[in-house]
Write a protein that binds this DNA or RNA. Structure first.
Lengths: 248, 248
DNA sequence: CGATCCGTTGAAAGATCTCAACTCCCGTGG
DNA sequence: CCACGGGAGTTGAGATCTTTCAACGGATCG
């Protein structure tokens, strides 16, 4: 791949920012050391493909920093985002050779990778990894299912509010902020990417964001910086004040 | 639960119809014997709730026969089906106590159940089960993601064609038929359940089924028996002649 | 400066939903 | 035996929502 470079210094796993959430979260020191031996870092530039759908996958790995998307495409070009990749999320499926989706770096992305074969044999020998991977996969399945009701049953306005509340809550949890009081964050996605996530057109996304702004549900500085004065109001607009689950 | 009875005779695992596809598929004879000691069968009548969303779950298990649905509901009553449960599918999430979705028996349903605690300790001690469960969960995740593009990007007609082609292929694989030539099967879902699966109203489902019939893509005898004269044509109508993945 | 990318907005077209009426089938009870 | 009622499904007409097509604004980059 052209738009990718190796990072020279191997970071120490103990100091890794995703140490406690990634697939290696449960590993003991000696297990970490074994992973350290087979890991390598890769950097992907914003906009570049990490993996092409249908290509042979010879590695798996965790997102260390940056944001990526999992995208599916129909023959006539319609696309649907089927997942957001955030730091600590895992890419690649043990036991499968071909990628089922396009993986695209939305921002610059740094990944901690393992060649597939060595990782699979570690997986077979290390229950701590296998358990954590099962747990993460179950969480992703729940998130995917929670997203289905957004795609299938929510109005455009509710879809936008749902996405904003997910991003707001994730951002709050990343920065250890409480979700009471005003929240502010940057949108990591273009209008088009939001449209692909929500099953809308980019024009509809733009209109609904304008409408939420007009109604005082959100405030905008520039195109990307969002302030939510009242999180409860936003979640009400999303159609489920209970929760919504995903990516919390 | 009122609408449920125990089945008296324990079936022998070796003769189980889902032996080779369920969570126990990889187990050796001795492992099966241990499962046999802790398993119990439950029957649910068509239309009854297997699990209520939010309830405490004290068991997990596999569908042996019949069809169930996984359903999610918004506060105002809008519902979205997030999964179809077919024979060999697994219900319940190790490590979680509360059900995240309603599980409803669409037809009479027979399940092979395990109390959660004993199953979890088996899971920890039996890599054959853990691996199979991971594999099944990854398959479900792929299926959920494949469904997202149906919900987010396909027209009503394409959605119906997608659902019919999934059911047709599953039915063909169950009866070991080739998918060349005409296929015939019964719809296991009401129009309303199809609507909940597809993110449509039941009227739209009805209209699109009528339209596909009018256009010769399908034939109908009564309301539920469908004949597909040309599977390739149906898949073309579904918008992805490549495949579509789910539930194959 | 011109090109390009991202985003906004308007107007008309198109798809799906909503509301409503009606059919068919089936089981119940008089 | 038949009337009745309910559940499932179909169809029509109008309302509503989202998309489509198109024009335009602002920022950035060579």
């Amino acid at each position: 791949m052209l738009n990718e470079r190796s990072l020279s210094p191997q970071q120490d796993c103990e100091d890794c920012p995703i140490r406690h959430r990634a697939v290696c979260a449960r590993c003991e020191t000696d297990e970490l050391r074994k992973l350290e031996e087979i890991k390598f870092y890769r950097r992907f530039e914003a906009g570049s493909h990490v993996i092409w759908c249908g290509d042979r996958m010879d590695f798996v790995g965790s997102v260390i920093s940056g944001i990526g998307t999992l995208t599916q495409t129909l023959e006539d070009g319609r696309t649907q985002m089927v997942g957001l990749l955030l730091p600590s999320d895992f890419i690649g499926r043990p036991g499968r050779d071909e990628a089922a989706y396009d993986v695209i770096a939305t921002t610059d992305l740094v990944m901690c990778c393992f060649r597939k074969k060595p990782f699979e044999s570690m997986l077979a020998k290390t229950p701590h990894i296998a358990h954590r991977l099962l747990e993460m996969t179950l969480d992703e399945l729940d998130a995917a299912r929670d997203w289905m009701i957004v795609l299938g049953r929510k109005s455009a306005r509710e879809k936008i509010a749902s996405l904003l509340s997910i991003i707001a809550r994730r951002d709050a949890s990343l920065h250890m902020r409480r979700i009471e009081g005003p929240l502010a964050f940057d949108l990591p996605l273009t209008r088009e990417a939001m449209a692909d996530y929500l099953g809308l057109t980019l024009e509809t996304v733009s209109r609904q964001i304008s409408a939420l702004k007009r109604d005082g549900v959100i405030e905008l500085e520039g195109k990307r910086h969002v302030t939510v004065p009242d999180m409860a109001r936003l979640m009400e607009e999303a159609g489920d004040d209970a929760d919504g689950g995903m990516l919390v």
